[in-house]
C-alpha cells in the first residue's frame, strides 16, 4: 500500500442546496413518484471519500448530471470522476457506490458503475473490476475492505 495520501490536497467544492421536493398532494393517495436522477443522487451524495473527511459531492467525484436512470427498464448508470488520474482509491469509491446503490434501490435494478472516460489512467481495468460481480463479491468478503466501505457509507444514512 502507498503510505501517505494519494491526493493530499483536493479541491473542495460547495455542496449543492438540498431541494425540497414537493410531494403529491394528500388528495391522491395512489400517485406514483418514480425513481429519478435526483433520488439516486440523494442516495450517494453523502458517501464519504475514503481519504478525506469530505463527501463525494463536495469533491465533485459525482454529480447529478452524471447519473442515468431508467425506472421502467430498472437501470442505473453512475459515472464518477476520480480527483486525480492515478487515484488508487477509484476502485474503493466505485465499490462504495455499488454497495450503497444495491442497498438503497429495489432489487429489480441493474447497477452500472463507470469511471468517466479519460479521467483515470487504468480506466478499463477499473471499469472491468467494478462491474464484475464475482470480483465485487470477493472484495466484500475481505473484512478490511468491508470495514472501509462501511465507514464511507455511514454518513449517507443520516
Amino acid at each position: 500500500m502507498v503510505s501517505g495520501l494519494i491526493n493530499a490536497n483536493p479541491v473542495v467544492y460547495e455542496k449543492k442546496e438540498r431541494r425540497v421536493r414537493s410531494a403529491p398532494s394528500d388528495a391522491d393517495e395512489y400517485a406514483v413518484e418514480s425513481i429519478d436522477q435526483q433520488e439516486v443522487f440523494d442516495h450517494i451524495r453523502d458517501i464519504k471519500d475514503p481519504e478525506h473527511p469530505y463527501s463525494l459531492e463536495e469533491l465533485k467525484v459525482i454529480s447529478e448530471d452524471a447519473i442515468e436512470v431508467d425506472d421502467h427498464r430498472s437501470y442505473v448508470r453512475v459515472t464518477f470522476t476520480p480527483t486525480v488520474e492515478h487515484c488508487t482509491m477509484a476502485t474503493i469509491i466505485g465499490l462504495c457506490l455499488r454497495v450503497k446503490l444495491i442497498r438503497s434501490l429495489p432489487s429489480r435494478y441493474k447497477v452500472d458503475i463507470r469511471v468517466a472516460p479519460g479521467t483515470h489512467s487504468t480506466e478499463a481495468a477499473v471499469n472491468k473490476q467494478l462491474n464484475d460481480k464475482e470480483r465485487v463479491a470477493a472484495a466484500l468478503e475481505n473484512p478490511n475492505l468491508l470495514d472501509m466501505v462501511d465507514e464511507c457509507l455511514a454518513p449517507s444514512y443520516e
Partner: peptide
C-alpha cells in the same frame, strides 16, 4: 426490501434508513 420499490419517495427513503 419490498418497500424500497414503493411508489412514494418518502417511503423509499425511510426504507433505506430502516434497512
Amino acid at each position: 426490501s419490498k418497500a424500497l420499490d414503493d411508489p412514494r419517495r418518502a417511503v423509499r427513503q425511510e426504507a433505506v434508513r430502516c434497512r
